[in-house]
Nucleic acid binder design. Structure first.
Lengths: 178, 178
DNA sequence: ATCCCATGTGTACGAGTGTACATAACGGCG
DNA sequence: CGCCGTTATGTACACTCGTACACATGGGAT
């Protein structure tokens, strides 16, 4: 139960992993780079996370939780009178504006599930959580479609260096809502 | 002009790179792994492609071209009387059915643009080409939205191990088309 | 024929990696 | 107190990687 010296050691390593992925990408993630960033010896990272996959799962899960909090905190999903499409489009704009390190980090971890089955349950959780949030305003089918469309729009912006067009996003999101 | 010994050497290397990414993912792509797969010496791959980015650009571009051909060959985008949403949903189902190696390969290269600016122009090209194809049946805004939604749906299937639901895809794609 | 240079090849080096493992420190328990 | 197992650490090994570079080869221009 009681961890001896540093009960936050494990948590610090996860935080460091998130910073490393944010700065250097998944390709730059290694036991050593995380150890250096967390300022712990190499053996410590390999002890807490035998596999890099384990570490990525923990990091992705933590990123998801932070994300969910942001969504919930913003509200707007509560009041049924607000324009849902506009709300979502505005929120994406906010997310994509400014420093994109966080956005890229979350998407990179999320997309890594394509090749790493260990991450798939967590990715699934993320999509499901977001759809659940949206389900308070629409039916489940529409919610899922909205998540898919938002993913697609974000990706097009991130992958092609195109500018985010909030009016366009609002328009097409609105079409999906019956 | 005339390449001396092996004019197809460069092409063979690209083909080998595509096979490597398909089997081991981008993480398994290296000058050496490609050289082994193409059955050429190490120096040959580094000569033709100084950087791995260069090689990925060539591979992604080639994958795109093959993809565009498949789309064009299937037709159905010509006849304005066919149900566009159903056509697209059916085509996605066909693409996602069976061996997904090809699908995963194309998406992995496509998504790699997130962290590799060198790939972004090619990713952009891909999205634009597909939207152009669709523009023969709808307006450009709708075409772009359809591409985004299709991307999102495919990703959800690939990332979360969820089964592809063609009826759902047809339904929501239909909503986007005005 | 001769020279030049694009093309092709082999090898070596230093850096970085995952992993294993022997050892140390310390908390809880008998 | 003394033992034991969890937690923590340092080091070493074998491996892969990108890169550089010296060298071979032969086609085309002169």
């Amino acid at each position: 139960m009681a961890r001896r010296y540093d009960p936050e050691r494990r948590q610090r390593i996860i935080d460091a992993a998130i910073r490393v992925v944010g700065q250097k990408g998944i390709a730059g993630l290694s036991h050593r780079s995380v150890a250096a960033e967390a300022d712990v010896p190499l053996g410590s990272t390999t002890y807490h996370f035998t596999t890099l996959d384990e570490l990525m799962v923990a990091a992705l899960r933590q990123a998801n939780e932070g994300f969910a909090k942001v969504i919930a905190a913003r509200g707007g999903l509560e009041d049924p009178h607000t324009d849902l499409a506009g709300e979502l489009a505005g929120w994406m704009g906010e997310w994509l504006a400014g420093d994109r390190t966080g956005v890229e980090l979350e998407y990179e971890l999320y997309l890594a599930a394509l090749r790493r089955p260990a991450l798939r349950p967590v990715a699934d959780e993320w999509a499901r959580d977001l759809a659940d949030q949206l389900s308070r305003r629409t039916d489940p089918v529409t919610a899922r479609a909205l998540v898919a469309l938002m993913d697609g729009i974000c990706l097009q912006v991130l992958l092609t260096d195109a500018a985010y067009d909030e009016g366009y996003a609002r328009e097409v999101l609105g079409r999906v809502i019956p």
